[in-house]
């Protein structure tokens, strides 16, 4: 499966945009993503391990919150999107 980094998250990963990983769940995908790009660790989660606010995660076209959150299952060919949440101002 692939992880696509959008907007500010590309900058946090040193410009990386498209990361290919092996993962069975969204949680595993995020862990593998941090192993590949350690600079993302504190940009994805706070010091207590909670996913940051203003971070949107999609599995293919579905908001991850509605397909199991971090327990969402992934299959070959799936795409996880890491997106700075739509924010005005």
């Amino acid at each position: 499966m692939r992880v696509l980094l959008h907007g500010a998250y590309r900058g946090f990963a040193g410009g990386a945009r498209d990361v290919t990983l092996d993962a069975a769940t969204l949680r595993e995908a995020l862990e593998a993503l941090v192993r590949a790009h350690p600079s993302l660790a504190e940009r994805l989660r706070d010091e207590h391990g909670r996913l940051r606010a203003h971070l949107s995660l999609f599995v293919n076209q579905e908001d991850a919150r509605f397909v199991g959150g971090e327990d969402a299952t992934l299959a070959d060919g799936d795409i996880v999107h890491v997106i700075p949440a739509l924010s005005g101002g």
Binding site: G7, A8, Y9, F12, S39, E42, R43, L44, D46, E47, H48, R52, A53, H54, L55, P84, A85, S87
Partner: peptide, 26 residues
């Protein structure tokens, strides 16, 4: 920042390039 959470950055070359600190963590 709201995107990626707040952070402290430092520059050793008068602001040409910046690096990110490890966050203060409770």
């Amino acid at each position: 920042s709201t995107w990626g959470g707040s952070r402290i950055q430092y520059s050793r070359d008068l602001g040409k390039t910046w690096q990110t600190s490890k966050n203060p963590a409770f």
